[in-house]
């Protein structure tokens, strides 16, 4: 068991999310950066889709009641673990395995980039019930994870059986660095926007608003305009869709977005770039860059190759002797 001593807002348990349930109104949920989540798991020899913690606000303080290997990926936190007498304090290196001993305390104090997401995996994964095919927390519907809510002080996290192997000591997996450039395809309503707005969409930096969350990134900039008012039927939407409500300021839908919407869609962020949505906190900016369908497919194929290589690396990892 791992006890939560202190915890910032919106630390949640996530895996790869729920799929194939949108027709029931069930959102995807899941880690906003599935690449970082899988990196952290593979470092520990976990199943690639084991449940991890997604953290964006510190400090997070955990006390371990057993020896446990952990790994941090995504956007880093200043982090360290210390012995019960607080005499020895060891800094935590992102993208590397660390062994936390029973009785030790792990502290993720300050995010390197405030608001960006960090992923913390535990050997064996966080062992919470699978609800509709996933351990992910659905904050809006209130199920999954720990009782469908964010972590609180006093919570206890059970872990599953740890693999008997992990990446060779000293070796790591570098977390990906976001470029803040989101490659996108034209959306179904692209032609309904004025030519000026189409140009503006691709050319101006879009500042991430403080009203952004796991449902979507709200963008600030020069508002976009339609050629004429457009009333659309309610239709299925997906993470990555860029909707433009009547105020003209786009919203990039994210993992917790609802399943059906009715605002005009100017673009869709390609799948291979969706992980970046985890790392563009309020106050930073993003650009949209148009790509062809072929480029979108090629980028996705590259990303899948990368994940396959990581998996192979994890398979080749050495027997774990340190625990």
């Amino acid at each position: 068991m791992i006890e939560v001593i202190r915890c910032g807002a919106l630390t949640t348990i996530q895996d790869l999310g729920r799929h194939g349930l949108r027709h029931l109104g069930v959102s995807q949920s899941g880690a906003l950066d599935p690449i970082a989540m899988q990196q952290a798991n593979l470092l520990l020899g976990n199943a690639h889709d084991a449940a991890v913690l997604e953290i964006s606000v510190g400090p997070l303080v955990l006390r371990f009641e057993q020896d446990c290997a952990i790994a941090m990926s995504g956007s880093s936190f200043a982090a360290s673990h210390s012995t019960p007498d607080a005499v020895t304090e060891t800094q935590l290196l992102p993208g590397h395995v660390a062994i936390i001993r029973s009785g030790e305390t792990l502290t993720l104090s300050k995010p390197l980039v405030p608001g960006a997401r960090c992923y913390l995996a535990f050997a064996g994964g966080i062992d919470v019930p699978v609800v509709m095919g996933s351990c992910s927390t659905d904050l809006n519907a209130g199920f999954g994870g720990l009782q469908g809510r964010a972590l609180q002080a006093g919570d206890r996290l059970p872990t599953g059986p740890a693999a008997q192997r992990q990446l060779e000591t000293g070796k790591g997996i570098r977390p990906l660095a976001p470029s803040h450039i989101l490659r996108a395809l034209q959306g179904p309503d692209y032609e309904s926007f004025t030519t000026d707005s189409q140009i503006l969409f691709w050319s101006q930096p879009w500042r991430i608003s403080h009203q952004s969350n796991r449902m979507g990134l709200r963008l600030n900039g020069t508002a976009l305009q339609l050629e004429e008012p457009l009333e659309l039927p309610s239709a299925g939407v997906l993470p990555g869709d860029v909707q433009v409500p009547p105020d003209g300021l786009p919203i990039v839908l994210s993992n917790d977005a609802q399943t059906i919407g009715g605002y005009p869609r100017i673009a869709s962020v390609i799948n291979a770039d969706l992980w970046q949505l985890a790392h563009v906190p309020p106050g930073t900016s993003v650009y949209f860059v148009p790509v062809s369908l072929e480029e979108a497919i090629a980028a996705r194929a590259r990303q899948e190759r990368y994940l396959r290589r990581l998996n192979e690396l994890s398979q080749r990892s050495v027997a774990c002797t340190s625990i």
Binding site: R22, H23, L24, G25, V26, S27, D138, N140, A141, S234, G236, Q258, T259, I260
Partner: peptide, 10 residues
């Protein structure tokens, strides 16, 4: 159809 929230019926 369903959408908006799990089990929300239009």
């Amino acid at each position: 159809c369903l959408g908006f929230l799990p089990g929300f019926a239009y």
